[in-house]
Computed example of a mutant assay.
Amino acid sequence: MDHQGVPSDALDPASPDPAQWPVGRLLSSAARRVERDWNAHLATWDLNHASHAVLAHLLRSPMSQRELATASSVTEQTMSRVLTRMERSGYVTRAPHDDDRRRHVITITDAGRSAFFVASDRELAASMVTRGLTPEQAEQLRRLLVVVAGERGPEDDPDLSAGSAG
């Protein structure tokens, strides 16, 4: 038996049927599908999930490449490639830091701000993720993903711990 009380042999990670996959494979597959759909949407503005996140960070304030890499959980080399593309698109500018000429300050441009807000249609984004779900299921999925993404246990969420008592 696994931790959910399902016989271990009941799941078949090699099956073509997602209902037979372990949770990790399901979540990974779902994330890839959502990322593919989201990137296809963002491509209209020459953006992808990584560059869209950079614009979101820069809306709060200008940042260094290192700060953006840390905030985005990527290496500085990866962030450099993302920023080069965004600079070509006219979405960000790089300027030398006032106090340290070796560092650059990355700032969102008006075009980047505009692209971010037009591309960030919440209803469209939600529909890409929750197609086929009822509103109640979509909200339950959101609450569960908050727990998974936040590395919190169900005991930290009263709505989830109450529902898992039976």
Rank of each mutant, 00 (worst) to 15 (best):
A111N: 09
E76R: 13
F117K: 04
E76T: 13
P96M: 10
S114E: 12
T109K: 07
S89Y: 02
G90C: 06
D99P: 03
R94Q: 09
A115L: 04
R101Q: 15
L83N: 09
D98N: 09
E87S: 04
T107Y: 00
E87L: 10
A115T: 04
T84A: 14
D99M: 15
M86H: 01
G90P: 11
T84N: 15
F116S: 05
T93R: 00
T109V: 08
R101C: 10
S114D: 11
V105N: 06
T109A: 06
R102I: 07
D98A: 07
T107Q: 06
D110T: 08
I108L: 06
T107M: 01
V82Y: 14
G112Q: 06
V105F: 05
V82E: 04
F116Y: 13
T93S: 04
L83F: 05
R81A: 12
T78I: 13
S80C: 09
V82R: 11
H97V: 03
R101Y: 12
T78H: 14
Q77F: 10
A95P: 00
T93I: 06
S80V: 09
H97W: 15
S80H: 10
R101V: 08
L83C: 11
D110V: 12
A95E: 13
V82F: 15
S114T: 08
D100W: 06
G90K: 07
D98G: 07
D99A: 14
R94K: 14
I108Q: 01
A95Q: 12
T78M: 09
T107V: 04
P96K: 11
R94C: 07
R88V: 12
H97P: 01
F117C: 03
R103Q: 15
A111T: 06
S89H: 03
H104Y: 13
L83V: 05
T84I: 11
L83E: 04
T93L: 10
T93P: 00
D99K: 12
R102N: 12
Y91E: 04
D98P: 08
S114V: 02
H97R: 12
E87R: 12
Q77S: 14
T109M: 05
A95K: 13
Y91R: 00
F117D: 08
T78E: 11
Q77A: 13
M86I: 02
R88L: 12
H97T: 04
D110L: 14
Q77N: 13
R88H: 13
S80P: 03
R102G: 01
L83S: 04
H104W: 13
M79I: 00
R85S: 10
T84E: 11
I108R: 02
R113T: 11
D100I: 11
A95N: 07
E76F: 04
T84V: 14
R103E: 15
V82H: 13
T93M: 06
V92H: 04
R113K: 09
F117N: 05
F117H: 12
A115M: 08
H97G: 08
A95S: 15
R102D: 11
F116M: 03
